[in-house]
Amino acid sequence: MRCLALALILCSLAAFANAYCYMGPKRVGAQEPCQDDTDKDWHEVGSSWTNSKCMECSCTAIAMDCCDRMGRPSGFPEDCEVLRDWKECTFEVVKKNDHSVQCPHAAVGK
């Protein structure tokens, strides 16, 4: 029973750790700029930026790494919706029929 519980915990941690970050193709020793997958902008090696989908990225000689800066809401009631502010990289979970009422939720990432 303890092994099953440990396996479930490890599987959930692996999913959490990898769900909202990604690494681009390996670029060992590369000095060429990285191209953002979302905005298609080019960024010099050593630079960091946040793209229009709130992914915080960095360009290194090894790879381009990006992680979700906003997080993803989950576990909220069906009568609620997510309002995202892509400029500020924030979100609110509110009632569909009354945006002044906040809804309970969990969030993954960020």
Rank of each mutant, 00 (worst) to 15 (best):
M1W: 08
A5R: 14
L10S: 13
C11E: 06
C11D: 04
C11Y: 06
S12R: 13
S12D: 05
A15P: 00
A15D: 06
A15E: 11
F16A: 15
A17V: 07
Y20Q: 03
C21V: 05
Y22S: 11
M23C: 05
M23G: 12
P25M: 10
R27C: 04
V28H: 08
G29T: 00
G29H: 00
P33L: 07
Q35A: 11
Q35H: 12
Q35C: 07
D37K: 15
D37A: 14
T38S: 14
T38H: 07
T38N: 09
K40R: 14
K40G: 03
K40Y: 10
H43R: 09
V45K: 08
V45W: 01
V45E: 05
G46C: 05
S47M: 03
S48Q: 10
T50F: 11
K53F: 02
C54M: 04
S58H: 07
C59M: 08
C59T: 06
C59G: 08
T60I: 01
A61V: 04
I62E: 12
M64R: 07
M64Q: 12
C66V: 03
C67M: 10
R69Y: 06
F76A: 09
F76V: 09
F76T: 04
E78F: 11
D79K: 13
D79I: 05
C80A: 13
V82A: 06
W86Y: 11
K87P: 00
C89I: 02
T90K: 14
E92N: 15
V93S: 08
V94A: 02
K96T: 03
N97L: 12
N97Y: 02
N97C: 02
D98G: 12
D98M: 04
D98P: 03
D98Y: 02
H99E: 14
H99I: 10
S100L: 01
V101G: 05
Q102F: 06
P104G: 10
P104R: 14
P104N: 11
H105V: 02
A107D: 02
